[in-house]
Amino acid sequence: MTSAIQVSNLTAGYGRRQVLHNISLDIEEGMVVGIIGPNGHGKSSLLKVLSGLVPATSGQVFMGGVAIDGMSAHQRVAKGLVQIPQGDLVFPDMTVEENLLMGGYLAQGRTEIDRRVNKVYEMFPRLAERRPQIARTLSGGERRMLGIGRGLMIEGQIMLIDEPSLGLAPKVIDMVYEVLAKLRSVSPTLLVVEENPVRLQAIADRIYLMDNGEFVWNGTPDELSRNSDLIATYLGA
């Protein structure tokens, strides 16, 4: 197995405030990895550092063996690193279709873009129905699907998904996770961040627990569910 993304001794922060301490992580190709942990402890920051939105202060990130540290966010996207940001961030005044077209920004040729758009519509029939609708008028769940669909348009090698269940009703979360389960067949490697491990356990191969900007535990979903102390301490469940 080759590693899809490899992180070594990564440190990052905002101003002089350090939020990530010496993070190391190795994700093999084709794996689904979950990162869980309490709110505000660096999970999202880690994804932002990986995607280049937030600069790292030290440490290195490799993708398929190539260092990508010096690259800006849009250059990393071109390398196939896709991030689906927290809280939708759809283009609010554009239609569903235009949002998807923006997802295909890097794709070459009209036919290729059409193929990808149709693929997304196949996966999310609901989006196909809403094709000409302005994104801001979509429901929360639809916006989340649009966000994921737009990310799929890029057809990258790795998808970083930031809290896909955030702020959604349980029923809608079910729908989102159905889609994520399907994603396994499309995108080779997934890195999903969640506050709550319950849903992640169903789809992840490996789970990391993050607290105060460092990994304090990692293991398989089964190991996590057997370790009730851990869950009680960190996640208050």
């Binding site: 896709v82 283009f91 005044d93 077209l101 990310g151």
Partner: peptide, 24 residues
């Protein structure tokens, strides 16, 4: 045009535009 859609996208959501591979 594509250029126009990109300009609008960037004006509405800079972070998301970057994550689509746009050089803002």
């Amino acid at each position: 045009t594509k250029m126009g859609i990109v300009i609008r996208a960037v004006s509405q959501q800079q972070v998301a535009s970057q994550l689509m591979g746009v050089n803002v």
